[in-house]
């Protein structure tokens, strides 16, 4: 993707003397923000996680005790890790495949009214999260629209959010309504595939399938890779559906790790322990992202050689 970024030209030294003061002045607010709202809190969070405070920085130093507890004596840790990983494994492929399929469909040559179709597919993703959560809770209630529609074609309805098996697929499913952002990213990528590549395949006698398999798909792997990474990072932090729809239930079947952190910090007011939990989340995100990155050289195709 770096190929699309404008090349960085080093400043011509003669004209641009060093601008120490101006540089710090212009970047000043952002630097203060970075120190005050990112770096500072990060350090504070490490410290906090090693104290026993409930609601402040005045706790006693307890070293790694919280971390030890997470791995040995925390009843919810494995449940919430399993729930979160299962959810990511369901939601990320579901959203990416759907978004990709719709983008390819809405990039079909000769299809009229593309602009309007694209708008219809995109608009749901701007619906405020709270409104969309309530709407889906309503649509997917046991006697709601979804079950009525399913039953009308002979498929039995489910207790979506109140069923241990269905709750995670149900939460992933309602997320499909908001895939517009990914769709737009894919559309931009699809429009960047040179026509001549398709023509070459056509000359060689290839059909729609070969075009898709040997041109569209490989050319799109960098964009797909980007959306997978973003999807995983976002998915691992999921907690709003638990906050607004399931409260972690039924029977902890939607006990997202993010929800566990949230309720530990802001409902049970055990801030220091929640800080330790959030660092474990960071390590998990880091590890999973690293694994996906490591696989990328086997399947992500960068035009013009290796990724830069």
């Amino acid at each position: 993707m770096s190929t699309k970024t404008a090349a960085f030209k080093p400043p011509s030294r003669k004209l641009f003397k060093r601008n120490e003061i101006w540089g710090w002045l212009f970047a000043g607010p952002a630097i203060i923000g970075f120190l005050g709202f990112t770096l500072g809190p990060m350090i504070a969070s490490i410290y906090l996680s090693m104290t026993d405070s409930s609601l402040g920085f005045d706790g006693n130093w307890i070293g790694m005790a919280h971390y030890a507890r997470i791995f040995t004596a925390e009843p919810f840790i494995w449940i919430s890790v399993r729930v979160t990983l299962t959810f990511v494994a369901i939601a990320v492929p579901m959203h990416i495949i759907t978004a990709f399929f719709i983008a390819v469909l809405l990039n079909t040559e000769g299809l009229k009214g593309l602009k309007y179709w694209r708008t219809i597919a995109y608009v749901p993703s701007i619906v405020p999260g709270v409104a969309s959560m309530f709407l889906w809770r309503w649509i997917m209630n046991p006697r709601g629209l979804l079950n009525a529609a399913l039953e009308s074609v002979g498929i039995p309805g489910q207790n979506w959010f109140f069923d241990e098996f269905w709750v995670l697929p149900a939460i992933a499913f309602m997320g499909i309504w908001g895939i517009g952002g990914n769709m737009v990213i894919y559309l931009a990528g699809l429009q960047g595939v040179p026509r001549s590549y398709y023509d070459a395949i056509e000359v060689d006698g290839g059909g729609i399938f070969s075009k898709f398999r040997y041109c569209t798909l490989p050319m799109m792997t960098p964009v797909i890779f980007f959306t997978i990474i973003m999807g995983i990072i976002g998915g691992l932090q999921t907690f709003i559906p638990a906050l607004l729809v399931t409260e972690g239930g039924p029977n902890n079947a939607s006990l997202f790790y993010g929800w566990h952190i949230y309720r530990t910090a802001f409902i049970n007011f055990n801030m220091s322990y929640a800080a330790a939990l959030s660092w474990i989340m960071f390590l998990v995100i880091l590890a999973i992202t690293a694994i996906v990155f490591a696989t990328s050289k086997h399947w992500v195709y960068y035009e013009g050689g290796e990724s830069k």
Partner: peptide, 15 residues
Amino acid sequence: TMMIPGFITLIPTFL
């Protein structure tokens, strides 16, 4: 720092 989960900074910032 773009990859840092929001919860890490949210809790100390709140305090």
